[in-house]
Amino acid sequence: MASRFQNLRPGVLILALAISVFIWAVAQGTSSVIQSFDVEVELVGVEDGLVITDQSSDEINVRLRGSRASLRNLNTDQLKYRVDADGGKPGVAVYEVDVETIDHPTGTQFVGYSPSRLKVRFEKRGRKAVGVRAEIEGVPAPGFHVAGVEIQPEKVWLEGARSQVMRLNEVATESIDIAGLAASAQREVRLVLGGGTVWAEDNKPVQVEVRIEPDPVPDPVPDLEDQDLGDPRLAEPA
């Protein structure tokens, strides 16, 4: 057997090896595989007078079958599952999932997905002007106190889900730490609005000035021993 290979030319062996590698690569490229990944949900066409307050899922998990070659260059991070929310009304809307609307390479097919439907809650949009409160933490250095706080602007317009906007009377800023300060301080801070269903129309930070002044010096207490109380014998009888 060894003598047979010894009689073969080196070029023939190299060619045979190249053909074997090519056949293996073709087989790997055409073999069918299943890839599972998540696709972000994007709602489009939401009415201007509505706000999304709840959504049953932010992603659709899909399973896509195809050849290794067709799936190799698939960029799953750029895929979106778009839901047409045009015509939505206050309340809960149910949308059936149709994964065929998701872009996928030719020759591949979806073999599974979850969830099969999406529930979205819409609420009317509200708008209200509320006061701004500076959230102060800590105490100044010994011998100093907070003399006042100035905020610009003093009020901001909030917008979002009507039920949440209308029950707000003020909104707080990020915490401002004044611990150990012996002089006034100016800070540029953001508003703390909590969830994403309420937001400020103007997203700019607010300006806060905390005036810190020295504690007042108390009046000296008179020394009674140094005072001339007069002759006690001259005091009027009781």
Rank of each mutant, 00 (worst) to 15 (best):
G29I: 04
S20T: 14
I151P: 02
A172N: 15
G160N: 06
R63L: 01
D86C: 12
E154Q: 15
Q78S: 15
A161E: 01
A27W: 02
K80S: 10
P153G: 13
V206R: 02
V198N: 03
G87T: 04
N73P: 02
S67Y: 05
P142R: 15
E42G: 06
I102F: 02
V21C: 09
A2Y: 00
R63H: 12
P232K: 13
D202W: 08
K80T: 09
D226W: 00
L17I: 10
Q186D: 12
V83T: 05
A185M: 11
T53C: 03
P205A: 09
D58P: 11
A18Q: 07
V192M: 11
L168V: 04
V111N: 10
F37Q: 05
V192Y: 00
A235K: 12
P90Q: 08
N169Q: 10
Q207L: 13
V39A: 07
S31N: 14
E159L: 10
T30V: 15
L181R: 13
D219F: 13
R125N: 09
I136M: 12
V92S: 05
E40K: 15
I14E: 00
L224K: 15
D84I: 03
A235P: 05
R65H: 02
V92C: 04
L191R: 01
V21T: 08
P237N: 00
H145P: 06
P105E: 04
R190D: 13
A129F: 08
A238G: 11
P205E: 01
V139C: 00
D202G: 08
A172S: 15
L74K: 06
R167H: 07
V83M: 05
D77H: 10
D177F: 07
R133F: 14
I34C: 12
R233G: 08
W157P: 02
Q55F: 00
G88S: 13
M166I: 11
Y95P: 02
V156A: 04
L229E: 07
P115K: 09
E150Y: 11
V208F: 06
V62Y: 00
K128D: 04
L79V: 05
E188G: 13
P237R: 04
D84Y: 03
S175H: 12
R63K: 13
T101W: 05
D202F: 10
E137R: 15
E209N: 07
K80A: 06
D84K: 05
S70M: 00
L50Q: 05
D228N: 15
E225D: 14
R133H: 14
I102A: 04
D48G: 11
G131Q: 09
V192N: 06
Q6D: 14
P140C: 02
R72A: 09
N203T: 13
L158V: 01
L8C: 04
G148R: 09
L193E: 00
I178G: 01
E100Y: 08
T173P: 01
Q35I: 07
N169M: 02
T101Y: 05
V39T: 03
F37T: 07
T53Y: 01
G194E: 03
D228Q: 11
K204W: 01
P115R: 09
E188Y: 14
R65G: 06
L234Y: 03
